[in-house]
Computed example of a mutant assay.
Amino acid sequence: MEQEVIDAIMDFRAGAKASDDKRDEGLPTEVDGVKRINDISYGPDSKWNLLDLYLPKNVEGPIPTIINIHGGGWCYGTKETYQFYGLNWAQRGFAFVNPNYRLAPDVVFPEEMDDVDRYIHWVADHAAEYGLDTNNVFLIGDSAGGQMAEQYTTILTNEKYRQMFGYELTDLHFRAVALNSSANFMFDPGTITDVVSAYFTPTVLESRHEQVDTEEYINDDFLPSFICTANNDFIRNNSVKFDGFLTAKKIPHVFKMYGDDQNPREHVFLINQKDTIAKQANDDEMAFFKKYLAK
């Protein structure tokens, strides 16, 4: 891999972490009503195959469960960055599975998806141990994680596509998916930037074209979807296009764009636990999930 791509990734990581740390400064890592369990191993990589689990204490019976796929351009992000977002979901009454996964340039497509599949199987294998409701599971992804959430939903709901990855279904019953500032339509011009090309390399795009072209395999069984973006989201048009795509296929979904000229919002704004518009977005997603909860 060219050194300029490595340098671009290092610069991106440094800038993103500084921004995320500033956003989350002062937030508590322990919150009322939530039990957190840190650094659970779900796979062979001792550094990256780890997840945190946040459990609400005030829920009777099996706990409806959210499995998160974090964003970060396929080359940045950790569960520590998403802990405050996950703790908030646990305070809302959902178990929240908050994993790490390996990052580019150490891995290329579909190895991050392989980690997602590993931790989804971990949830299925350990649900009874932690009181998780296997009949009410929800998937959330933002940015690059949104692309992977879209892709994994397609894997779940299209056997032909699933066979391309060699994955097996679990007994988890996924009810809906939330795609937040999602990076859809990977072959659209401008989607594969220098940083992104560390994961979706030219060789990958040629040899695994069908796997990357997820939208070609979305069928009527795709999960009910909540699509969230913002007026100043730099990939806002991806979400707008995906709204139209699901509308044409008559797949149940909600599309929301937050922010306006007086109160603009940016990419993945809803992770910000200090923001009132982010709270509204999370309230809307929670209402959407609750609509699909099985009794």
Rank of each mutant, 00 (worst) to 15 (best):
K274A: 13
Q262Y: 14
A230P: 01
Y258L: 07
D220L: 11
K241Y: 11
H267K: 06
F222M: 11
I227E: 10
I251V: 02
Q262T: 11
R236P: 06
V254K: 14
C228I: 14
P264V: 00
F255C: 03
G259F: 04
L270P: 11
L246D: 00
R265C: 13
T229G: 04
S239V: 00
L246C: 02
F226E: 02
E266S: 15
P224A: 05
G244D: 01
K256S: 08
N263S: 12
F255I: 00
N231K: 04
D220T: 10
Y258D: 06
D220Y: 13
F226G: 03
N238G: 10
A248M: 12
K250P: 03
R265K: 15
F242I: 00
T229H: 08
F269D: 08
D243Y: 12
K274Q: 13
P264R: 09
S225K: 01
M257V: 06
Q273M: 15
V268S: 12
H253I: 01
K241T: 02
M257C: 11
F222P: 04
F222G: 05
T229S: 10
K256C: 10
S239E: 10
F269Q: 07
N238V: 01
N232P: 04
K250I: 01
F234H: 10
M257Q: 12
G259C: 05
V240G: 09
H253Y: 05
V240N: 12
N272R: 09
N237C: 09
R265G: 09
N219R: 07
G244K: 00
I251A: 06
N263H: 15
L246K: 01
N263E: 13
H253A: 04
L223E: 09
H253S: 02
E266Q: 14
N219P: 02
I235Y: 06
K274L: 08
D233G: 05
N263C: 11
N231C: 11
E266H: 14
D220M: 09
L270M: 15
D233R: 05
I271G: 12
N238P: 03
S239F: 08
D221I: 03
H253Q: 03
P252Q: 03
F222S: 06
N219G: 12
A248V: 04
L270V: 14
F234T: 04
N232G: 07
S225F: 08
P252T: 01
T229E: 06
